[in-house]
Amino acid sequence: MQPTVKQLAMVWAALLGFTLVEVGLAFPHFSAVLFLIVLLVLSIGKSALIIGFFMHLKFERRALALTLFPLLIVFVLVLLALLPDAERLREMRF
């Protein structure tokens, strides 16, 4: 089983649309942390579309995703746990 051309075209259009939203949000002034969270959510959404349809993981056996991704997710979460420390460092320094 594989994605149809129509599905691939819709994913492509959605990815371009999400990118325009990101660029549009870059110019009004938000706090760095809030903007970072919004961008991360949009990026994760775009990644899910790329992995699911372009890399057709959605059409593979679930065992593949369950083997590959838990490690990556735990690794990224551990890394992200460091980011609040960056804010603390900023306050300590200045």
């Binding site: 760095a32 942390v33 970072l36 990224v76 890394l79 992200l80 460091l82 980011l83 420390d85 960056a86 804010e87 460092l89 900023r90 320094r93 200045f94």
Partner: peptide
């Protein structure tokens, strides 16, 4: 994450 850490920790 290294880049973002440096970005957030430095005004």
């Amino acid at each position: 994450v290294t880049y973002t850490y440096c970005r957030l920790s430095n005004p």
